[in-house]
Nucleic acid binder design. Structure first.
Lengths: 264, 264
DNA sequence: GTTAATTTACTAACCAGTTAGTTAAAAACG
DNA sequence: CGTTTTTAACTAACTGGTTAGTAAATTAAC
């Protein structure tokens, strides 16, 4: 099981255990939500006893919040980096949109957790996000809107409501993956297949170039540059790749740890 | 409880009871999904004994499918009507987008059910939608894409991938409501408030007018016409208006909803 | 040998589905 | 038309399985 670990100090082992639990919880909750996630399953996936969860965390909900927080932290850090690229506002918008698209299928846990959380909050249930919003989401949203407004001010982007640009750009991406299971049935093609993803990310960026840029020609060129600069990441199987009925609670995150074994 | 009903024939009463169960199930499942929905709660809301659910339906899942089907039927019928308005392809696209936006907050059950169902399907769980897809969603999607392609062919719309136009138009709307709870916290304003909805529906349609129309001026005029022709519907409180902790399974729905067969 | 890490064994609550029965409408009968 | 029989609609109470959480015992580290 853990032969590779060469006997560490107690605190090191403890930190490792805690991290394994948090990691397993992230996967379980992202698949099944807070109420649907099973503590027994988390414990099994982490290779520990269920009671240990209550040793390291106050309870199921506290574990959920911790998982949400850790995953949001990583996501925001990456997004902020992209927003600071050294190019025009419009082109940075395209970079952000493409990064957003690529992130959803290559690291789907954040998206899935957020979806579940939005539904939970709509039901008026306890707010697990609020500690994160101020420090993480608000700065990111702020910076994105500033970017769009700058593009509009300089005449590069069409003068429309900047929030609507965000909704359209992000919404198209989110909706692509949200509706994927249904599109699968409607057109019997798999939106998660590599060709489909390749086509869609290109279409999404070119669409933005053609539509939100005042000079459509300039927009198309920017889109072409952005696409050329950003190769499509190796996809990590998005659905239940991690559902380890097999019992091995090994590392899952290895980026290059090959995909292949996709649905259909 | 049902003194107002002037003693009907047995089958009439039975039909009514079945409808009450289906209606209660629709609400319960739309809030909590299939696995989260409680049969006891459905029975209570319908004013019947839990065992009656199993008398009228094969089980929890069959009830869920029936609820999904009935609500999808109404939704598709309305959407198809809007797609057949007597105006240019571009303008019909705007009409569809606005109708889609208005529907989500005025009749939120369908959207909520679909969201939950997409998550369920992504998890690879049993497919409750497939009977509906062929007969309902496929024709609607087909007709929408044809509409956009017609607009492009006639030069009214910008020549981009027509599917991407759908993703952008629908996605922006879906994402607005999906992200509403978070936006609520980020900007402390309520996306479901009347002024916010009023602003957003206008912005969304004007955005489409400015962006997907070849002639931006023409697009703006079309957007203005569409907005003028479609007053904002009376909003029905979308969040937990139905969460009857109080125990009364009374009427929930506000006026002007077109549908019939409501409890009491 | 003391403390931290981890497990075993439990419980109280919850929940989908069933059973065995009651009520009253409808049908059959005289 | 009134009475009896049948059957459809409906209910109370239970069953078996699941699950979050806990207390006490055990093991490993320092």
């Amino acid at each position: 099981m853990t032969e590779s670990t060469p006997i560490r100090t107690q605190t090191e082992r403890a930190d490792q255990t805690r991290a394994r639990i948090l990691d397993a919880a992230t996967r379980e909750f992202s698949e099944n939500g807070l109420s649907g996630g099973r503590t027994e399953q988390i414990a099994e996936a982490a290779g520990v006893n269920k009671a240990l969860i209550y040793y390291y965390f106050q309870g199921k909900e506290a574990l959920y919040v911790a998982a949400l927080e850790s995953v949001a932290q990583r996501m925001v850090a990456n997004s902020l980096r992209v927003l600071s690229f050294d190019c025009s506002a419009g082109e940075r918008l395209l970079h952000s949109a493409l990064h957003h698209f690529d992130r959803i299928y290559s690291e789907p846990v954040f998206q899935k957790l957020m979806q579940q959380e939005m539904i939970r909050m709509t039901k008026g249930e306890s707010n697990a996000l609020s500690p994160i919003v101020e420090t993480l989401f608000k700065p990111l949203g702020e910076k994105t809107r500033e970017l769009i407004d700058e593009g509009i001010r300089l005449g590069e982007l069409v003068p429309v409501d900047s929030t609507q640009v965000m909704y359209a750009a992000l919404g198209a991406n989110v909706f692509y993956f949200l509706s994927a299971p249904m599109m699968c049935m409607m057109n019997d093609f798999d939106p998660f297949s590599r060709p489909a993803l390749e086509f869609r990310r290109k279409a999404a960026i070119e669409y933005l170039g053609q539509t939100v840029f005042t000079d459509r020609e300039h927009g198309m060129q920017a889109a072409a540059r952005v696409l050329a600069a950003t190769p499509m990441p190796l996809t990590i199987k998005p659905p239940t790749a991690l559902n380890t009925k097999t019992g091995d609670q090994e590392i899952f995150s290895a980026p290059t740890m090959a995909d292949e074994q996709r649905p259909k």
